[in-house]
Amino acid sequence: MKNNNGLISGLVLLSLGLICGLLLAFVNELTVERIEAEELRLKFDAIEEFYDIANYDLEEIVLENGTIYVLKSQSNSEIEHLVYSFRAKGYGEDVEMLVAVNKDLSVEGYTVTYQNESPGIGTKIVGNDFNYNQADDVSTFDSIGGATVSSNAVKAIFTEVSERAQSDFNGGLYDDEPIDEPNELEITVDDFYDSDLFDIEEVEIEQGTIYILRQDNQIEHLVYVISTPGYHDQIEMFVAVNKDLSVEDYIVSYSNENEGYGTKIVDRDFNYSVANDLSTFDSISGATVSSDAVRHIFSIIAERTEDDFGGGLDD
């Protein structure tokens, strides 16, 4: 009997542990969803101070020294606002701050979300009481009066925000994400016209190549292959133009943009309303930098196409 005592006690402990573990698993099951929801709510609580998040699509981008919350418009998923939540070394521990920036680079507001500084320094921060002369534009920041080291942290955060805000709105936001395989399509003139019907001549120009499709020595079509710098890499595009300066079709043959931008280009999702006449351009909505590249390509073509058909190419 006595020898068994230890074993039985061990078994009691084990069974108690099991019961407790199961109980905890049960409670966990009950609460886990709510905990996740609450965590999320808490995270976006601070943003609510600046924007009504119900009106936007939210996206989080986690960086080394903080998080960027991207507020995209629900109608056309353009970036409307960016809320930076950055940390910097303060006097004691890190200082964490939210800075809300609008699309026009004006600062909507800022608030200190975490600090653990000594009084005198700390209180000044919490009350946003550090005399920050906030300019309308993030590019011009004034210095901060007040406590030295902590305001250095604040200054560091503002400096970082001002440094990256512009490029973030223009697509740099996704720079830190892994880049997909480049989108490369094998495009030939055949994709636009039946090449058997034409004599095809290739002319190298500064920005790319022009295929001249002649029928009876008359230029019928021109296929421009132009590449311009996009945000991350070159973007190459085929644009087929008819004799009457209407655009037959256009295809992006090479792009190496990040997720969110690159796909837009490949899917031709940049809402380019190509007029029948190349001389009239509409703006492209969608990703800014990449579509800048696209727009650039079209403007190159538009500038020269009339001349090209008129025989400028033969010079």
């Binding site: 109980l23 905890l24 409670v27 609460t31 905990i35 965590e39 709510r41 808490l42």
Partner: peptide, 11 residues
């Protein structure tokens, strides 16, 4: 249990 409940309801 207290920790989980508090996390869920009094975050």
């Amino acid at each position: 249990i207290v920790e989980m409940l508090m996390h869920a309801y009094l975050i």
